[in-house]
Each structure stands twice: as structure tokens, then as C-alpha cells.
Amino acid sequence: MKAVALECIGIGLAYGTNQVLRDITLKIEPGEFFALLGPSGSGKSTLLRLIAGFNQHNRGRLLVDGRDITGVPPHARNIGMVFQSYALWPHLSVYDNVAFGLVERRVARDETRRRVREALALVGLTDYAQRRPNQLSGGQQQRVALARTIVIEPQVLLLDEPLSNLDKKLREQMRLELKRLQRKLGITTIFVTHDQEEAMTTADRMAVLDGGVLQQVGSPRDLYDAPANRFVAEFVGSTNVLSGRGDPDRNIFVADGLGDLPLQSPGTGRAVSVRPHALTIAAVRDDRRVWFDGEVRESEFLGEFTRYAVQVGESVLTADTPHLSTTPIYPPGSRVQVGIDPAELRLLP
């Protein structure tokens, strides 16, 4: 099967005056595992349904393998979608569910049988062909939905919140399985999620959406280490955002109510982001970091680390300190030193 690219060019969608998607331009490479990440109402599911053909965009173009598929009805698109609710047909057996798309394509009976068997084998459900969907567990239903979609060899595979209906343990297992399956088939895959951890662990690249606007596209590491704006910084992982003003002449950032922070490279941003685990809580200062006096407001012991809320100047910073059995835990009210590693500071617009 040839993997194809999918391209959104200036796509916009509005219902009346309500702009759901604005000017989405995005290229997904052949064979890529791509995540659409965003909070609810961000437009990520709308974009996915638009690619599937259930929503029609008002502006822009949608290309699959270089061909504009705008206006092509869903059934003629050859794009497969796995629904959040799985949408298995309760009146059909597992076998008939999987065979559905092949029947629609008038595939010969022998070949249908072979391909359904292959698809079921691929998801490890060979023995379940004659069962009804409601006789299967959630994880098994998920696999049937997957088998039903990949059996038609779609050009693009869409997954709508594929793991949200599973419990935590099953979710992690399915996550690995999905990834392995996608590698094996090499099919261009887009999945929608609101869970940044899910997106980061699974996707080759991801896009963050908010309010119908594309915020940033890149590898999970790009987005985590170099967030393009405040929203991405806060949505992908947790962070401290300090507002202020970058001063390129002195190569520092003047943080409101805190003071001067040295920068590694000059810039003029209006805010700076620093991850909680890049902050150090200590009793004494060293000279690798910039230090401030602080007072512990709250502490949460989480096992691997302790999360402190520390009052520094006028701001309250979140700091995660790795925990070993010999590490002290500072109770609320303790006076501590808060160290910031200048290499971990990210300027934001």
C-alpha cells in the first residue's frame, strides 16, 4: 500500500458567524502518525470530521495525495475513521461488521473472507468472528472498530479519541498496540486527543489547536522544549509563565515582580516559560543558577517528586523536586532558595 500525504490549505469553517476553524494550513507526510491535540471546543474533532467528509469547509482546500477532495462525499473518499464510540453495528456479527466495507466495494466473496480473516488476525480477534459486538469487552470492541476500518485499506486512517473509552491500564496497552500496528501498515494516520501525554507518547508529530486556530505544529519534543506561545507552553506539559519584557540589549528578561533573568540568546518576548522541574529548591545557593528568596506556600508529595508552590516576590511558582528517601521535604512556611537554570528559560511572544 502506498502511503499518501494529506494537506490542508487555508481551511476555514464557519456556522453563521461562529468561526469553528480559521485558516488551517497543515501538511501531514506519507506514513506519518500525526496527533491533533487541543482542549474541548478547540475544533480538533471538527477538523477530523472535515477530513472524513462529514463537515464541509467554507474556505480553503483539502488535498489527499495531491488531489483536491473538497465536496467528495464521505463514502467516496477512501478515508477510514475509527469513532470514539466505536460505532459497531449491534445487529451484525464481528465478521459482518468487518466485512461491511468490502461488501460495499463488491469484493469477491473468497477475497472478502480472506481479508476479514487477515484483519481480525492483525488485531488478535480471530476467534471472535461470530460474536456480537455487545459480547465483547471495550478493548475488543476497539480492535473490531480498527479491523473494520483497516480492512478496506484506506489512504488515510482517522482515529477520534481512540483511547478515551478504555480504563487506564488498557489505554496504555492499546497505545503501544496502535503504534505498532501503524508502523506495520505504514498508513498515514491522524488521531485526535485532548490528552497531551497520549499525543506525545504516540505521535511522530502533532498539532495543537485552540479556538479553531492552529497554534503550533512539530514533533512532541519541539512543542515541549520550544513552545511557540503561552497556550502551547501551558497545554503541553505544565509550566510557569512569567510575564515581563525581554531586553535584547542587556540580554536579560525583566520579569514583573520578580527581577532580572539572564537569557542564553537575546529576544524581545512579553513572557517567559520555565518548567517546574527546571526549578531547584534548596537551602543554599550555587552559581550555575539564578537564585531568589522564596517561601513555601504548599507542598504536595507525589512519590517520584515533590511539588511545591513557592511565593517568590509577587509570583507563586510551581517547582517539582525529584524525591529520594534522603531528600528533605520543606513544610509550608519554610524559607527556601529557588534556583532557575537560565538554559531552561523560553521566551514567549
Binding site: 463514502h75 467516496a76 475513521m81 469513532f83
Partner: peptide, 19 residues
């Protein structure tokens, strides 16, 4: 009947009437 049951059929190549 959840709408997605029909959408899934359309996704797999069934026209509106067929689904």
C-alpha cells in the same frame, strides 16, 4: 441509533441510501 453508526458505514464506502 447513534449517528456515528451511519457515519461509520459511509466511511467504509456505503452511500447515504445504502447506509
Amino acid at each position: 441509533i447513534n449517528v456515528s453508526l451511519e457515519e461509520a458505514a459511509e466511511m467504509l464506502g456505503a452511500s447515504k441510501w445504502r447506509s
